[in-house]
Nucleic acid binder design. Structure first.
Lengths: 148, 148
DNA sequence: ATACAAGCTCAACTTAACTTGAGGTCAACC
DNA sequence: GGTTGACCTCAAGTTAAGTTGAGCTTGTAT
């Protein structure tokens, strides 16, 4: 069979490992795009597979769909993204990941040193400082705001 | 004023930086425990602060409350956890975190190598292999969960 | 003694990220 | 040319992790 240029939802679902309903959902959220056949069925260009792969990966590391959508706005609307386009995105994600990895390492070490240490003063605990990270100033001030 | 042995919800909320409603919620989920005064008000022992700190930290790295609850089951019900108890938990978490960090690094490198590379064959992409184990999951929101 | 802040319960609402279902259309194979 | 499977839309349901609010009780400072 000659290589098919366009993909149906079912094909994208199968190849990306994502449910059809999820693809509809991503489209509604502006994460992917499709055009319609005369019979109103979706057809996708190949680069949707890459988009979906990136969506899944980004989600796995805890990035929300809206953040992904925002990052995707750097991609061209009409033409298929070039390597340069993806590279730009990659840079953005990589910084994010580096940051998250660093944070996790700190947490891991904090857990080992602090949870295991048996100390009773939560206030001095390095773990606590993580939560204050946005309100680091204002001595002794306690914010009731949940980060995130 | 002499050091107060027991804490009210409000005090725990203030010291832990978590809302009162969240504490009620954690209690309903079996993550923390309290006993009641004659007037039916909650009183907490000091180690609840540590529990809450751990809950927050674990959540920050994407561990769900039910997973935290499961891990907490290794802690003693009645007596205040000793250093040994916490150490055990710490070991469990540390392994989890090590695993997550490793996963993230792989993803980061995958992103650099794969998203940026401009290659069009998603099938061969290292990123793809990650997703297959996710595809056969239940309904509802999917949180970041470490594969075991 | 009384005001009023803090607590209590329980139900309903919220957001994210989807899934499920109902009711109807499209297309491809025999 | 019919039936079967893939699609379509839209509404409603689901799970996680809480928050908000109503209506009522407790505890404490003056």
């Amino acid at each position: 069979m000659a290589p098919v240029r366009e993909l149906t939802v079912g094909q994208v679902a199968m190849r990306s490992g994502v449910a059809v309903s999820a693809l509809h959902f991503y489209e509604a959220r502006g994460l992917i795009r499709s055009h319609r056949t005369s019979g109103n069925q979706r057809r996708y260009s190949r680069d949707v597979l890459r988009r979906v792969a990136i969506i899944r990966v980004a989600q796995e590391v805890g990035i929300s769909l809206s953040e992904i959508a925002r990052a995707f706005q750097s991609l061209p609307e009409e033409r298929t993204p070039t390597r340069e386009d993806w590279n730009l995105l990659s840079t953005v994600w990589r910084d994010d990941l580096d940051q998250k990895i660093a944070q996790m390492k700190k947490l891991r070490d904090g857990l080992t040193d602090c949870i295991g240490c048996g100390c009773m003063s939560i206030d001095k605990c390095p773990l606590r400082n993580k939560e204050d990270r946005l309100s680091a100033q204002g001595s002794g001030a306690r914010r009731l705001v949940v980060a995130r």
